[in-house]
């Protein structure tokens, strides 16, 4: 990476259907903006979250994993 290239982390977000996923929708309704390098995966509840998903995301090359619920 040259110094001119800005590092834009690729982030995958596991969001609870009942709160954070809805909040992400609301961010849209409110026309907020955030980097387009975030990918959301909807899960029914953060109770569903398994450490294996996090490891898999890193193995796939994501720079960060965000779990919210």
């Amino acid at each position: 990476m040259t110094s001119e290239q800005k590092f834009i982390p690729k982030i995958t977000a596991f969001l609870c259907n009942w709160c954070s996923y809805g909040a992400a929708d609301l961010a849209g309704v409110s026309r907020l903006s955030y980097p387009s390098s975030i990918r959301v995966i909807r899960i029914p509840c953060t109770g569903r979250m398994s450490p294996k998903f996090i490891l898999q995301a890193f193995r796939q090359g994501f720079d960060g994993v965000w779990v919210s619920g």
Binding site: T12, R39, I41, I43, P44, C45, G47, R48, M49, S50, K52, F53, Q56, A57, Q60, F62
Partner: peptide, 30 residues
């Protein structure tokens, strides 16, 4: 809610509609 699925070390439970395989497939597609 899938809490049982995440809690199991043996991978015995799975959640219809949000199976391990399905979430992995989503990750893989990304």
């Amino acid at each position: 809610c899938g809490t049982c699925v995440a809690s199991c070390r043996s991978g015995a439970p799975d959640l219809n509609g949000f199976t391990q395989e399905e979430i992995f497939a989503e990750l893989d597609a990304l």
